[in-house]
Amino acid sequence: MELIFPHWPMWIVCRKEDGKIIMRVGVLALQGAFIEHEKTLKNLGCETIQVRKREHLENIDGLIIPGGESTTIGKLMNDFNLTGPIKELAEKGLPIFGTCAGLIIMAKEITNSSQPCLGMMNISVHRNAFGRQVDSFETDLHIEGLGQEPFRAVFIRAPYIETVNEGVEVLATVDEKIVFAREKNFMAAAFHPELTDDTRVHELFLNCCKTFHNLR
């Protein structure tokens, strides 16, 4: 799927000419900062649905796996039978965007843990890789495809991507550590775009959702 930053207002992407909302994005709402993602998505003009059960996954154009505690989210995904259905949708091309815990859950390999996860994206991640909470930080990030304007990124007990395998494109790094990448219909960030007012990363994702919506 093409990764293009849209240069038109997002409400055109999310709505029909008569103003009717057409984009519907699911946010995994088992635990974590799902409300912040919903707020950003709604501000950009799309409809959101909190995903807690299998039936909530119907008719969505994209799925966000939010920040939170990755062990908690992974276990609850298993307990409430969401792991299989999400993987099936991923294979059908559903755009999925994971932030922080979401990135960990999407990775094929977690180097320092054996917790339950989706194991979809061709990357290996290291958990709590920048240290504990006192080492958490915010910084200006240059993101591939988002133009010259830096993106203020918040990293909280964040992971980073240790290695990317075939088909994965690196979109941003901090001190040479990979913190943002994409592969086919997957996008994953080690930081929290939902905690800042800059909506560019979400717009990037919504553009993938739009392509999927048109194919669907």
């Binding site: 088992l30 939170g68 006192v134 910084t139």
Partner: peptide, 21 residues
């Protein structure tokens, strides 16, 4: 420039704990 211990970072961890026990 990287900054640690900011209000956003402190408040941010609590945001990540939401909906949890």
């Amino acid at each position: 420039m990287a900054e640690q211990g900011t209000w956003k970072v402190k408040k941010g961890l609590a945001e990540m704990l939401k909906g949890g026990v």
